[in-house]
Design a protein around this nucleic acid. Sequence first.
DNA 1: ATATGAGGATGACGATCATCATCTTGTCAA
DNA 2: TTGACAAGATGATGATCGTCATCCTCATAT
Lengths: 200, 200
Amino acid sequence: MRISKAQTRENKARIVAAAAQLFRERGFERVGVAEVMQAAGLTHGGFYNHFDSKKQLEEEACTLSFGEALGPLSRIGELDSRRRRRAAFAAYVEGYLRQREPAGSAPRCPFVVFGSDMPRQDERTRGVFGKGLRDYLDKFANALRRKSKKPEETRADAIFALAAMVGASTLAYGVDEIDKELAQDIRTSVRERLIDEFGE
Amino acid sequence: MRISKAQTRENKARIVAAAAQLFRERGFERVGVAEVMQAAGLTHGGFYNHFDSKKQLEEEACTLSFGEALGPLSRIGELDSRRRRRAAFAAYVEGYLRQREPAGSAPRCPFVVFGSDMPRQDERTRGVFGKGLRDYLDKFANALRRKSKKPEETRADAIFALAAMVGASTLAYGVDEIDKELAQDIRTSVRERLIDEFGE
DNA sequence: ATATGAGGATGACGATCATCATCTTGTCAA
DNA sequence: TTGACAAGATGATGATCGTCATCCTCATAT
């Protein structure tokens, strides 16, 4: 059953999207090619028409995840009043550090989800991570920019804030459902600090 | 070839230690039972004399890793002069955020290594993570204590500082070897901030 | 209109892995 | 001293999974 070119492109996109979601929920190792294909509404056989290997799918799924993550941050940077940017940043942090519903669902931040797996990935996948991180930090710094601060300082601010958010999210997700109070503590402590310092 | 009780106990300890090391380097999924046993100097067959399942080994390896992580922090808290504690804390942060040699070797912090995998683990393993985190935060807060600050504030400080360290380490390890400059940037930015604020 | 080949389905293969059965050995309780 | 059994070695089993071979179907180029 041959399919139109547009259909084919859409199929591949659906495979990558399904993979990104599954990998985020359960990690690369615990998700098989067949399961990804099924989630995309296909059978496992056609997989190698689109990808050379599972590794390549992992790469493309990472690329997609990092790309999607940039949206909210970009929008903050586009605001031209510093006051508005501060407010938008505060809302962004709040959203980032909100507990997910349903509890136990995967965090969406690709740094949190793929972060500790990266040192174990091959060079190409890590390259995707590196590019994603550089892009993210650029947007982050742009969102925090202010006339009275040098760009290097703003970049250091961005690095620090992102690190705190990623760490808080990692720790909080780790104890969600077994110690809700601690998870909540982590999220609010870090959120309040960051908003104090960088948002409004 | 039956073995003495002391030998048996030592064997089990060696299995758990080998597992902790291997799991830290490559994650739970990429390390087989047979490989752990071999690293402990045994063959795979005797594994189930010590453990009910691989999951149980994962738990015990986590427990060991979290236990070991407490040492350096505890020692800071035992110092009685606040000045000494600040200096020791600075040294601790510096050590924590130092690039590992050889490059590419696993970080030792169990929060970084196991963190993003935790939401995918079973309840018992996550319980180990939760206990490890609570204990670690207690020691951390104790290391940061000062008469002029309320305990809740100190605890919030500890949460924030640990989150920043874990996030920085996660991100830096992710880009080590593909973007050394960025990795270095992350480590120094976060280190300087934390030492500014909490150490000396 | 038709031949071609891209894209998908079905099924199989080989590797890896957790788990278990069985055998062996020598420790330790009696 | 001796017999029972704990602990380790060897090997097998069943499941899972990445990958590939083969076949089928129709979209597309000519």
